[in-house]
């Protein structure tokens, strides 16, 4: 299958002819596996870095974490990228630009929403100028929760994306990616639960806060009772 310039999918006639050839299935699946291997191991990233998460994206590309290890490099132009990493808050003024840049990327393409601002707007989600999650206007393949997520979390996100591409190309069913539960978003980088200086009332307050949250996503409105 391929995508033409009018964004219609079609099966190439050559591909159809090949499929009828005896023994082609073995060759084609092998070729497909090789192609998938190439696709997953050279994910070039377009950093849609608007704010704090952009700095953590840079840190992920830098020496301690090094995105280059898994063949991922950042390119400045959307035309040469496979993955758009939306790192940071997307505002109403910025959203049309993000959409445009997403449309400029060539197929096949994927999107990673990095950080809670890109996932749901986080605590800006009720603000007049902030888009409550980029998946309201463009598809998102992998969510990487955190505020901002540590660079290793971004690594895990890219690994998840590779796994997802692999399964999709093999025609297997994949768990649809949902917005992570908000309790996951709130987990601290280093649990200071065991610290002697920590008050018991803090834990209770956190527990209460977690229990009172909307399990479906992060879009709970103050007036809306779940």
């Amino acid at each position: 299958m391929a995508v033409n310039e009018e964004n219609e999918t079609f099966v190439h006639p050559l591909y159809e002819a090949l499929e009828r050839f005896p023994g082609a299935d073995v060759g084609l699946t092998t070729a497909d596996r090789v192609l998938t291997w190439g696709l997953t191991n050279a994910l070039w990233v377009f950093p849609m870095a608007t704010s704090c998460c952009g700095i953590e994206f840079m840190a992920a590309a830098c020496s301690r974490f090094d995105l280059d290890r898994i063949g991922t490099i950042a390119r400045g132009t959307p035309r040469q990228c496979d993955v758009m990493v939306i790192a940071g808050t997307i505002t109403v003024k910025m959203a049309p630009r993000v959409k445009k840049l997403w449309d400029q990327m060539p197929e096949p393409k994927w999107a990673i929403a990095m950080g809670s601002c890109a996932i749901s707007g986080d605590f800006y989600r009720d603000i007049y100028s902030v888009v409550p999650g980029v998946d309201t206007f463009m598809p998102v393949d992998v969510y990487v929760p955190g505020c901002p997520p540590n660079p290793d979390a971004l690594f895990m996100g890219i690994r998840r994306l590779q796994e997802k591409i692999r399964l999709k190309r093999e025609g297997k069913w994949t768990e649809p990616e949902l917005r992570p539960d908000t309790p996951g978003l709130r987990s601290p980088a280093i649990g200071r639960l065991g610290d002697p200086g920590r008050d018991a009332c803090t834990s209770q307050a956190q527990l209460d806060a977690v229990l009172g949250l909307d399990p479906g996503g992060g879009l709970r409105r103050p007036d809306q009772k779940s």
Binding site: V92, P96, D126, I127, Y128, V131, P132, F137, R221
Partner: peptide, 12 residues
């Protein structure tokens, strides 16, 4: 008098 979560079509 401006509501904090004012809608702005179509983006939010």
């Amino acid at each position: 008098d401006y509501a904090i979560d004012t809608r702005h079509f179509p983006w939010r």
